[in-house]
């Protein structure tokens, strides 16, 4: 049996990919916080990233990690479903029950995937506005991502959907972060609780960091 066709091998790859995405999500969130610095800092950060030729390698890597995470998680999910063809008539309550977050990881993943596609459509490809907004700092002309973002977040429905999606993302990570580390083989009675709490702290920071941007922009537009 090969590593990648085993349940544990697949779980570990899903976990490693998930941790890679955790790192990406954290840097993305920190980059977004530049909105609190100035429109120029925000735009120049985005420009520095997209004008670097290495961006294509990074993007290809990110897509591969995303696809690996999604495809292998779906394979495991199908195997898990097949492992219990007849469901229980009564669901367990209390300690012997399964937490809601683990039961709905797949559903959270679907929400996140829809959000990511929509998010790329809106911001990366700028398909929201009829023309690309541009701005000039010194000699350099660059996309005015800040203006695009302000216009998008003027719509309360978009803000609500964005905040909902990042909360689902945080919920997904609140289990995913510590679970991935356990799947990779780290568990110790002294550190298990701390690891779980670190996962929650990380997820809370990511969620609040992401949610602060649209709420701040929407409120300051009023």
């Amino acid at each position: 049996m090969s590593y990648l066709s085993s349940t544990i091998g697949r779980k570990q790859v899903v976990g490693i990919a998930g941790l890679g995405l955790c790192l990406f999500v954290l840097t993305h969130m920190l980059g977004n916080l530049l909105v609190f610095v100035s429109p120029q800092a925000y735009n120049e950060y985005g420009h520095a990233l997209t004008s670097n030729p290495l961006i294509y390698i990074a993007e290809a890597g990110l897509i591969a990690i995303f696809l690996g995470h999604i495809i292998l998680a779906l394979c495991l999910s199908m195997k898990n479903k097949a492992a219990r063809p007849v469901k229980y008539a009564v669901n367990a309550e209390g300690e012997k029950s399964t937490s809601f977050v683990t039961k709905t990881m797949k559903h959270q993943g679907i929400v996140i995937l829809v959000f990511v596609v929509w998010h790329l459509y809106t911001f990366k490809f700028g398909s929201f506005a009829p023309e690309q907004f541009e701005v000039q700092y010194g000699d350099v002309v660059m996309r005015d991502l800040y203006r695009l973002m302000v216009e998008v977040f003027a719509n309360p429905m978009y803000v609500a959907w964005y905040v909902f999606a990042v909360f689902i993302l945080g919920y997904h990570l609140s289990h995913g972060f510590s679970s991935a580390i356990k799947t990779l083989g780290f568990s110790h009675p002294k550190y298990d609780d701390k690891l779980t709490k670190l996962g929650w702290l990380y997820s809370a920071l990511v969620t609040l960091g992401f949610a602060s941007q649209p709420i701040y922009v929407f409120l300051s537009n009023q």
């Binding site: 349940t7 495991l76 029950s97 683990t102 679970s179 356990k182």
Partner: peptide, 17 residues
């Protein structure tokens, strides 16, 4: 683990039930 997979058990989700 190979035999465990062969027997059609599912994968672990670290939920602790």
């Amino acid at each position: 683990v190979a035999q465990m997979d062969e027997e059609a058990f599912g994968a672990c989700t670290n939920t602790g039930a």
